Amino acid sequence: MKRVRKSKKREENDENDSNDPFSIIHLELKVEILMKLPPKSIGRLGFVSRHWSSMIRSKDFTELYLTRSSTRPRLLFSVYRPNMQMQFFHSCSQEDPSSDHHKVSYTLNSDLKFSFSPPIRGLIFGRNGTKAMIGNPSTGQFVSLPRVKTSKKDILSIFGYDPVNDQYKVLCMTIPIQRRIPGMYDMMPWEEYHVPMSEEHQVFTLGPKQKWRMIKCKYPHGHYSGCVGICRNGVLYYLASYNNKRSLINFDLSSEEFSVTKLPEDDHIQEYGNLVNHTGKITIVSQSQTYNGPLYIWVLEDASKEEWSKVATVTNLFGKDEIVMFRGMLRTGEIILKPLPVPNPFFFLCYDINEKSTRKVVIEGIGDDSAASIQVFFDHVESPMFLPKVK
């Protein structure tokens, strides 16, 4: 019988496992110890031994860590510094931004500024042209995806999680780039805008040997440049033009089928609506392009019946000379506003609709570079998840 010879690396791993001082500790106690560590430290422990690696990379451990992290949402900042060709990710406690700071950095292969979509279960998706990546900003691990199958097109990408099949997916749509005549669209009412229809719809599923797959859409629609989609309960939502009306497009990540929800007959939403996830419901907040007018807040009460309710109109937030941009909403229901231009030190404002009060949140060390490009994400959940290599 042929004797199987162990490799030197495997023998070293076996020896490390046997000499592991933590091997005598009960599994439940090990898990409790790991739960108190930041994801970046947990990722390093995964290289100590096969035992630690199998425990840390298990689905049960990741889900447990995510569940506990969800009770302590964080602020996540993506900071691109062009002079360093570096993308920095900085997170801090949402309740007390002055404490518990975590930082990781990612070195770009070239002078590319990646635009990132809101994080999903601790992971984040970034794209620059046809280049795309998925990363875990808590551990500093990023994987490059295959190039998007298109060229010379305007691209909309939305990242989400399918709980039915336990998969992370990216929906990508492309439309022909339309030449813009300076000043033309500023003088036209919204309903006369011509929004080109999406020509290609593709899906990427995170995993080894995965590629972009073309899918069909029964509802011809056109998205808008700069549009940001959100994911809730396995469905992607984004605003688009359907039958010459601004509508809410829904994409079920499990069935990979599209559907359409009508928006309220409100001029403010039709022209300036922003999509957010507010208290577990799909919400649209509209703000004029001057960034100093009132905010209108609509909530989708029943998607199947296309029922919307106007829950608030926020006026007279600040003086007429103050310019603030709507950036999102917290789980608490507070509205997030970012002053323009970007202040130094960096700060944003939280407005409580019910109390009609405002608090200022200052983040030191973020806006100290005038050339830096900053994206802010709220209710971020840290994850120790290890990303599979994409071939």
Rank of each mutant, 00 (worst) to 15 (best):
V361K: 13
V342Q: 10
F347Y: 15
E355K: 15
I336L: 15
V362M: 11
I366F: 08
E334C: 12
E355Q: 14
P345M: 01
T358R: 04
Y351A: 00
R331C: 06
R359F: 03
I336A: 13
N354R: 10
T332W: 11
C350E: 14
R327E: 07
M329N: 07
N354K: 12
F346S: 07
V342K: 14
V362N: 14
L330K: 02
V342N: 13
L349F: 10
M329Q: 13
K338D: 12
Y351Q: 01
T332V: 12
K356V: 02
R331Y: 13
G365T: 09
F348C: 14
I353W: 03
L349S: 04
F348L: 14
D352G: 13
K338M: 15
L349E: 06
P343Q: 00
G333Q: 04
C350Q: 12
I336N: 07
Y351F: 11
E355P: 04
L349A: 02
F348W: 13
N344H: 14
D352P: 09
G365W: 02
L349D: 01
D352A: 10
Y351T: 06
C350V: 03
R331V: 08
V361I: 15
G365V: 08
R359Y: 07
C350K: 13
I366W: 00
L337V: 10
E355T: 05
V362P: 15
I335Y: 09
I353M: 14
I336T: 07
P341I: 00
F348H: 12
